[in-house]
Design a protein around this nucleic acid. Sequence first.
DNA 1: GTCTATATGAAGATAGAC
DNA 2: GTCTATCTTCATATAGAC
Lengths: 214, 214
Amino acid sequence: MTARGAQAIRLGFSSRSGAQMRTLNAALALFAEHGVGATSYQMIADASGVTKGAIYHQFKTKDEIIIAVAEMELAKLDDALEAAEAEDDSDVARELLLNRIVDHAVEHRQGANTFQFDPVLVRLLSGHAPFQRFVERLYGMLVGDDEGPDKLVRLAALTCVVGGTVAHPLVAEVDDETLRTQMLNVVRQLVGLPQPTTRAGRAARSRTPRTASA
Amino acid sequence: MTARGAQAIRLGFSSRSGAQMRTLNAALALFAEHGVGATSYQMIADASGVTKGAIYHQFKTKDEIIIAVAEMELAKLDDALEAAEAEDDSDVARELLLNRIVDHAVEHRQGANTFQFDPVLVRLLSGHAPFQRFVERLYGMLVGDDEGPDKLVRLAALTCVVGGTVAHPLVAEVDDETLRTQMLNVVRQLVGLPQPTTRAGRAARSRTPRTASA
DNA sequence: GTCTATATGAAGATAGAC
DNA sequence: GTCTATCTTCATATAGAC
């Protein structure tokens, strides 16, 4: 496996200055709270503690900010995807990938929701080739070749559960570790993966950064 | 069971004029397509074929339109909820309710998504008492008394699957009947309901408007 | 990298004629 | 119920000084 830096190339991820990172993180939080369509340039500037003029120096348009935020978040899953693609056993690969994805979603909660369901974000990304390629790799790992309607529906349901459940008011009081465990049970059931007492499950989990480095 | 009209009182649903209904349907379609935050009063007026002034005569603020759209959609599920609450057998009740909810979601696709995940809509409704009462009744029917973390997570996942899957790009090409069937399989599995060959399943489905009147 | 100042348009909203 | 006209505020975006 190549060094971590490879993710940048594969996703078309540009390196960002410190000021740009502050902007993107402020934007991410606002997008999650209000939705992309209801977040203004002014709000982002205020949250970053600088003026609009400063932000416009970093990103020429609002769309550029949206795309950059999406790329920043997606890049965090690129590692996991590469690791999964390098696995021989497809069950091990899927278990590993699901663990990382659920970890990421639980860590971000509201942000995961935005990314999956915000109409403005989704529309912008649907015209963004690097994003499309990434999603196709992701889906490929999760369903494989069989693309019958039942598989498609289960895969769609899986992405909804991962992106939506973490931000749901019903689980607001559930602590991260419990949420992680229960969500993994649900998504394993959804895609027909055996539960974690099996050999494949233990093998995959032992490869996550949570217990050991990739 | 009371007459159909009862739904209006229970949800706080006001009766609307023809012009108001045209406005609400136009707004619903735009909310689904662009998100609530990215839909302007002007867009709604254009889609309705009238001017902003005419719309302001029907609804004093944009928030009023949003609430009215939500009430209109929710009222469509009120019937199903009442029917489920009148059932003795909780498995039959849940099977019936899930059938109706999935029917409704598949029928609307993009609209169901908005309703579940749009940040502006969700925030507005969270301060709207009739909506809160309705959702609590709905959740009560689906989980019952046991409110452990696993049940909460599964219920949250259920609502995400119902609201999100129907609008997912992956299932855009799946026809309504297939989507309905597959989604029901998924949601039954999520809440631990037996699959449809059982007595409870047949009994519940025989009570839906699809095969017989309630 | 950050600021101020400014241009241009669209947002939500109101008043009042038809 | 619908229209035009108008108000104010805020949106995206640019120019140019520090």
